[in-house]
Amino acid sequence: MIAVLAGLLAGCGSANDPDEAGPAAIQARAISTFRSGSDQLRFGALEFLGGLELSSDNSLLGAISAIRFRADQRHFVSVLDTGHWLTGAIERDEAGRLKGISDARISPIMDRDGGTDAGKGEMDAEGLALRGDHVLVSYEQYHRVDTYPDPGFETSPPDGTIPILIPRRRLRANRSLEALMIAPRSSPLAGGAVIVAEDSLDDQGNILAAVLDGPLQGRFTVRHYGGFGVSDGVFLPDGDLLLLERRFGLIHGLGVRIRRIAGADIKPGAVVDGKVIFEAGTRDQIDNMEGIDVFRAADGSLHLILVSDDNHSILQRSLMLEFRLHDENLLSQN
């Protein structure tokens, strides 16, 4: 969460009605242009393909922190920072553009005792990853990475936890374990889980991060600059990491960018950085962008899906945006 943004918007919305858990009818308004007053499609390395503004009569919808797609590239799993799962499927029109969300369901995330009322301080879900027969979730405030059985995560307490390696005293309460992703098995990280904090820094001002398991297990850091905090990330098939970052302030306004970090640079003790391949601001159809995922489309190109956290505020929106990643080197990767 961005502290300034949270402070400005606190109390604007609510999502505490447990009776709303279950199926959720989601309405979607199509977004056909990304930049206001312009038909421009290319933004850095990304080509805008379309988007949706989501709403629902179900008060639990909102606060989307992360999204991961299943192998069919249609069904997805999301977490809400209110301590809920959101599952569903994207629908497309005849031209292949995003059209809506179907089969949506919202359910509370169970805590370690099998309860569902531990409160946001313990269930502030921010990061999400799918690996084998488990769903991994990272949490702020009560810093941890828990594992849930898959299938069955929606009705099960966690069946394990993964040591986060980063000293908890170095993690800021509401700006900690924001991004959680799984490296390709074919990469040097060999399918390891990776976490990156939002805005918890070391003594040199770099963002704390760690490879949680695998052959390169250990801590590393990410260079921090420009007032951006990390909100999510995803590995590309070639092993490079895309980091989604956002900022909000009176000087710069709302902003989002994506940095591409070479996968080979991620190793214990490293300070990593990468090229900014995409950046957007107040002229563009963005909000508090919190989640990113990637999948390969039928034509072989890589598509990115970005989602936003509306903080359950009437001043913000729940967005789902789709882009094509332009990179000739990636098209040859399996």
Rank of each mutant, 00 (worst) to 15 (best):
Met1Asp: 04
Gly7Pro: 04
Leu8Phe: 07
Leu8Arg: 14
Leu9His: 15
Leu9Asp: 09
Ser14Arg: 15
Ala15His: 11
Glu20Leu: 05
Glu20Tyr: 08
Ala21His: 13
Ala30Val: 15
Gly37Cys: 11
Gln40Ile: 06
Arg42Met: 05
Gly44Glu: 08
Phe48Trp: 14
Asn58Cys: 05
Ser65Tyr: 10
Ala66Pro: 01
Arg68Asp: 00
Asp72Trp: 08
His75Phe: 09
Val77Asp: 00
Ser78Thr: 14
Val79Ser: 05
Gly83Asn: 14
Ile90His: 02
Leu98Glu: 06
Pro108Tyr: 13
Ile109Gly: 12
Gly115Met: 05
Gly119Leu: 04
Gly121Ala: 15
Leu128Lys: 13
Leu128Met: 05
Leu130Gln: 14
Arg131Lys: 09
His134Val: 11
His143Tyr: 10
Tyr148Thr: 04
Pro151Leu: 12
Ser156Thr: 06
Thr161Gln: 12
Ile164Asp: 01
Arg168Lys: 15
Arg169Trp: 04
Arg172Ala: 11
Ser187Lys: 11
Pro188Gly: 06
Val194Asp: 00
Asp202Leu: 08
Gln204Glu: 08
Val211Tyr: 00
Pro215Phe: 01
Gly218Ile: 14
Phe220Leu: 12
Arg223Pro: 00
Pro237Thr: 03
Leu242Asn: 10
Leu243Asp: 01
Leu244Lys: 14
Phe248Thr: 06
Phe248Trp: 05
Gly249Cys: 02
Ile261Cys: 00
Ala264Glu: 00
Gly269Val: 12
Asp287His: 04
Glu290Ser: 12
Gly291Ala: 02
Asp293Asn: 12
Val294Arg: 11
Ser301Thr: 14
His303Trp: 09
Leu304Trp: 09
Val307Ala: 02
His312Gln: 15
His312Val: 09
Gln316Cys: 07
Met320Lys: 06
Leu321Tyr: 08
